[in-house]
Structure formats: structure tokens, C-alpha cells
């Protein structure tokens, strides 16, 4: 079976005051129809840039796609004419953003914003588009949709606005849904509801999902496969179970180590262990050296880590780490 989405060796550069920086440095991702791929990493690791690149929405300039390929169902998107990309956006690829509070246009009614997406891509009447918008509001679980269809965004709560965003994203029954930190700005209880909704939609429409998040808990619940990104590269990629159970890259281990495991007995005594953290921060992209970008924060780093960037190796569960490669080699011999 050919993959729905095949991103290969994608390189994206940005012109900045510090010269050209490489925001994505050879990112490869594959996604089968109906599958959920979790993309995790800290802020600034290139998760959102990857999503925007797939949508063809990298602002150029200052951005530039320096190489690689993005294929949707075999069709190359890089260099495709804007007309074609516009057709695909909203129709074949839907996207949900991080900030439901500001992602809807404040001066238009939400029903019209949903209907607009339908009218852009489907040959239907205004009345029909409105009827479908109403159905969509019902589908995404907006209570009292007959009233809410004429509401303005500011009249809805954050959770409802995100539901409206989801309604827009799925309005044309896309094959791919990109959710860029869809719950970061929401209350915890609402977060769970939104994840449930996305899963429910996935079951119903058979849409493939790219879930961008830094929430490992969400990954554990939602993702079939996981790609861990760090400083513009994929450092570990594989089935979600494998990565969560036996993370191979020190960075992934750090991320998983950051999920607090709360022992009720200790919590009762108010003696919870301090929260784990990965020391340091993601290095600014213009200061990246030759070696592994994580080397400076890695407690296990050895000489070669600072000199040569490790390639992503391994089938199924792939890792970009010298230490892991060495361990795997000694196991095999």
C-alpha cells in the first residue's frame, strides 16, 4: 500500500538577522491512510513548520523550501502551482490550530466561516452549505447548533471555538487532518473532550491524523506511530508502543521521564519527588554546530556526538543516536 503522505528529506530555511537558519533539516515522515502519527518535541523543534510546509503555508520570504519532497497520494506538492495547493487545502488536508481564541475571524458568524470552506471546494448552493454547516456543528458536538450557527466567535467558549475549527477542518471530508497542538490553550477537562472528538471523527471518516503536541500523555492515547523531533530533525520514529515502552534516544527518554508518575501514597504525604526536567534548552537554530544537536544537553554524550550528526537508522523503530547505533551493532555481533 502506498502511503497517504510521504515527506522525504524536507529542508526548510529561513532568512533571519543571524543569516540563513535551517528550520527543518532533512525531515522524513510517512503516514498511511487512517493512521495517526504523533509528532512530539519542545517548542521550536520544527513541528509546526513541518505542518505548515505540508499545507504549503510557509511564508516565503523569509522562508524557503531548500529541498526534499512532500507527496500526498503520490502527488508532489513542492513546486505545485498555488491553484492546486489551494484546492488541496481545506478539501484534502484540514488543519486545526493551537489557538482557538484567535483562529476564527472575529467579524464573521461561525456558521458562515464553516460554510465558506464548503462553498470554496464543493459545487453546492448557499442553503445547502448552511445545512451542512449545521450538520457539522452537530457532528463536532456543539450544543444547540441551530442557535450557535449564527453566533460570533467571541460568543463561544474556547472549547466550542475549537470544535468549530474542527468542523471547518473536516467540512470537506479530508483525507488528512493536521492538528497542531489542538488542546494546548484549553482547560484540562476540555482537552480530553477534544481528543475524544478527534478520535471519534477519525473512526467515522477514516481520516489520517498528524497530531502535533508536546503532551506525551496525548500521544500514548491517540497515536499509532510517533516521530520525535529535535532542532529541526526527526531523532526517533516508530510505533507508539515501542517508543513509549523502550525509548532509544536520550532525548525521548528525557521527554518520557518528564511525565510525572504520581504515587498517591506520596502525594498524600505531600512528598512527591521533584518534577523531572531535561537540563538546558533547545539551542537557537543559528548556533547549531556540526554534531548531534542534543549533545550539549545529553548526559551520555561522547566525543563523536559533538562532531558528527547521527543519521536516522533502523527499520520500524528508527533512531538518530551514535550511542544507540553502537549498542545495536554490538548486540548484532
Amino acid at each position: 500500500m502506498s502511503p497517504l503522505l510521504d515527506v522525504r528529506d524536507l529542508r526548510v530555511e529561513f532568512a533571519t538577522r543571524h543569516g540563513t537558519v535551517t528550520a527543518l533539516d532533512g525531515v522524513s515522515l510517512r503516514l498511511e491512510p487512517g493512521e495517526t502519527l504523533g509528532v512530539v518535541g519542545e517548542s521550536g523543534c520544527g513541528k509546526s513548520i513541518t505542518a505548515l510546509a505540508i499545507m504549503g503555508l510557509i511564508p516565503m520570504p523569509p522562508g524557503r523550501i531548500a529541498g526534499g519532497s512532500i507527496r500526498l497520494d503520490g502527488e508532489e506538492l513542492i513546486g505545485a502551482p498555488e491553484r492546486r495547493l489551494r484546492q488541496l487545502r481545506g478539501r484534502d488536508i484540514g488543519m486545526i490550530f493551537q489557538e482557538p481564541m484567535t483562529s476564527l475571524n472575529p467579524v464573521f458568524r461561525v456558521g458562515d466561516q464553516i460554510a465558506e470552506a464548503i462553498l470554496l471546494h464543493q459545487d453546492v448552493s448557499r442553503d445547502e452549505a448552511r445545512r451542512r454547516a449545521l450538520d457539522l456543528l452537530r457532528t463536532v458536538g456543539v450544543p444547540d447548533p441551530g442557535q450557535r450557527i449564527d453566533a460570533y466567535p467571541h460568543e463561544l467558549s474556547g472549547g466550542l471555538r475549537q470544535r468549530v475549527m474542527i468542523a471547518i477542518a473536516i467540512s470537506c471530508q479530508p483525507r488528512l487532518l493536521i492538528a497542531d497542538e489542538p488542546t494546548t490553550a484549553l482547560d484540562v477537562t476540555v482537552q480530553a473532550q477534544i481528543f475524544d472528538l478527534i478520535r471519534d471523527i477519525q473512526d467515522r471518516l477514516g481520516v489520517a491524523v498528524i497530531l502535533i503536541t508536546h503532551d506525551m500523555g496525548a500521544i500514548a492515547e491517540m497515536a499509532d506511530r510517533v516521530a520525535v523531533m529535535y532542532a529541526g530533525r526527526v531523532v526517533e520514529e516508530g510505533p507508539a508502543d515501542a517508543i513509549l515502552d523502550s525509548p532509544a534516544h536520550p532525548y525521548t527518554r528525557g521527554l518520557i521521564g518528564c511525565i510525572p508518575a504520581i504515587d498517591p501514597a506520596l502525594a498524600a504525604l505531600d512528598r512527591l519527588p521533584p518534577l523531572a526536567e531535561i537540563p538546558g534548552v533547545v539551542p537557537p537554530l543559528h548556533l547549531l554546530g556540526q554534531g548531534c544537536a542534543f549533545a550539549d544537553r545529553c548526559i551520555e554524550a561522547v566525543d563523536i556526538c559533538r562532531k558528527v550528526a547521527p543519521p536516522l537508522t533502523g527499520r520500524g523503530h528508527a533512531v538518530a543516536c551514535h550511542l544507540h547505533a553502537a549498542a545495536a551493532a554490538s548486540e548484532e555481533s
Partner: peptide, 24 residues
């Protein structure tokens, strides 16, 4: 953000500028 949303819906650039942006 809502301009990015409009583009992500596949709204043509002219309409993005004169409908979605100008009104605000």
C-alpha cells in the same frame, strides 16, 4: 491567526486580503 485559518481553508489570496483581512 484567523488569516492563517482562511488560507488553510483554501481561500484565494485576493479574498483573504479584501474579505477576511480588510473587514478587520
Amino acid at each position: 491567526d484567523y488569516i492563517r485559518t482562511a488560507r488553510a481553508k483554501g481561500v484565494p489570496e485576493r479574498r483573504v486580503v479584501f474579505h477576511h483581512a480588510l473587514r478587520n
